[in-house]
Structure formats: structure tokens, C-alpha cells
Design a protein around this nucleic acid. Structure first.
Lengths: 137, 137
DNA sequence: CTCGAATCATTCGAGCTGTAACGAAGTTCG
DNA sequence: CGAACTTCGTTACAGCTCGAATGATTCGAG
């Protein structure tokens, strides 16, 4: 949550600040099309119909959460639960026409002025290398 | 939430992965002393008695949240609300003896094997520079 | 084929988080 | 002084998230 006392002061804070920037941009784009961040996360992943479980995997969250978010999207007519052919337990979540149109607008908003774009490519590459190293040690 | 389509693929994911690592360590340390991450965040900041507002500022969250978390800590006898001398609106949140002892154990846990420690100092410095640059552009 | 284990989605309970609105207390200014 | 504004903490409400438990279905071992 804060420093963690062990790395040089500031690194942790900088990492949190960077992800906060990313979150803010995503949430702002979601809000611009009338969605919450979580709902937008789901819509974002629904390029094609997915089972609840697979959708949860791609959204990086647990199944109950997917149920909750899909409920809200279904109430608004943006997605529909379809029976899964060949597995009567499972369901396929698919965007409706309205949902698909909204997904297009979401992507358009996301492409507009994303964070970290001011950083030169060389720096971005260096950042990737360092973060990758940090995560694999 | 995910890529954001505009930076090189992976940078966003790496940043989220890094902060997830930090969160996981903090939550694990909190759990080790019987606290949730938010509760531990509050305890962490309570080096001295603070007003609700100031505590919220340091925890990086809104006032209602502080009320909620302090409620739980107070129920467990880890903190107490004291009247603020000189401002009858405000309260001072202070650790009890039990709370202070638990805070010590929290810090001990946090110091034990923190993330990103395997990274050489040079890399850490480079990371700081790059993140700082990314945030100020 | 049948019974037990695994998997799917859901529900429940708890906690976290924010915005809006509130009453109480302090501050400012005519 | 007294009215208007601000600030303090709280409450109410809505949404997000997870772990545990549940019922339905599928799969696998014998």
C-alpha cells in the first residue's frame, strides 16, 4: 500500500502512481460511454462470446464478480446469456448489437490520448526490460 | 485495466503485474497479523494520533472509508477515537497498546522478504528515473 | 453403467471504495 | 453580534471484490 521499507524510497510510490494513471484513463473512457471501469473491462474482453469462467480469466477476477458485472450489463441490454452448445452447465456471454456498438465507442475513447504516450520508444523499451527483470527475480 | 492500445504491448500489463506483486506482499503481511490490507494501511500510518481527515489523506482514500476502517479497528480495540483538543468537531485516532504492539509486528512482517528486492540497485535507480519521466510528461 | 470427483455458474456474507447529503462546529465578514 | 461559508466526521447508497457454500451438470474410474 505504501513504501514497504526495503526498496529505495519512492519506487513503490512511483509504480502505484503509474498504474493509478492507467486506471484513471481507463475509468474516464468507461465513464465517457456510460460504463463503470469493471463493466468496461468486461465489454473490452468480449470480442467474441465467452463463457463466464473464461471471461473472468481475461478480466483477472473471480467468477462471482463476473456474474455481478454481467448482471448489470444484461439489465442494460448490452450483453445476453446464451446457452452453451454442448455443455448445459455453461453459458455464453455475447454482446448485443447495442453492446457491440458501445464497444466500438469504448475502443475509440481508449485510443484517444492514452497515458505514457509522451515517453520515447527507447524509454518504453527500457521500462519493459526493467519491469520484466524485476518480476522474474 | 488492460492494454490500452497505444503503448507497446505489455508495458501496461507489466506495470499492473508489478503493483499486484506489491499488493500481494502487503496483503500477506496484513493477513499474517490478522488485518485486512486496508486496516493494515491505517495502522501503518498511525505512527502518531491523527485526525480522520489527515489519516484519510495518508491512506489515499476518502473520509467515509476512513470511518469504515476505523470502526473495525475500534471494535477490535486496536485504536480509539479521542476528542481533539481545540476542535470539538474533530477526533484524534490513536493506537491502543494492543494496536501499537500489532503495528510493530506488521512492520516486522513487511521487512521480511519484500518484493523487487532481487533487483540490483542500478536497475532500481533506472526504474525510478524512467517512471518519474513517464509520469511527468 | 454407476458412483464419486471435478467443473459451471450462482448466491451469500463480508469487506472495500466512492459520491452525495447531513448535522455539528468553526471561521469570516458585514 | 449574526448570517454565510467552510470544514469535520458521519450516514446512506451504490458498486466492486473475494472466499465459501450450493445445485446442476459433466467426466472419469472401476
Amino acid at each position: 500500500m505504501t513504501t514497504g521499507e526495503g526498496e529505495l524510497p519512492g519506487l513503490t510510490a512511483l509504480l502505484y502512481a503509474a498504474t493509478a494513471r492507467l486506471d484513471a484513463h481507463f475509468a474516464a473512457c468507461a465513464g465517457a460511454v456510460g460504463l463503470t471501469a469493471s463493466q468496461a473491462n468486461a465489454v473490452h474482453e468480449l470480442a467474441e462470446p465467452l463463457g463466464m469462467r473464461e471471461l473472468g480469466r481475461r478480466m483477472c477476477c473471480e467468477p462471482p464478480n463476473v456474474t455481478f458485472v454481467v448482471d448489470r450489463l444484461e439489465e442494460r441490454g448490452l450483453v445476453e446469456r446464451r446457452p452453451h452448445p454442448g455443455d448445459r452447465r455453461a453459458k455464453l456471454i455475447a454482446l448485443t448489437a447495442t453492446g457491440a456498438e458501445l464497444r466500438e465507442r469504448l475502443f475509440a475513447a481508449l485510443a484517444c490520448d492514452p497515458p505514457l504516450t509522451g515517453l520515447p520508444d527507447a524509454d518504453r523499451r527500457a521500462l519493459r526490460v526493467l519491469l520484466d527483470r524485476a518480476l522474474h527475480t
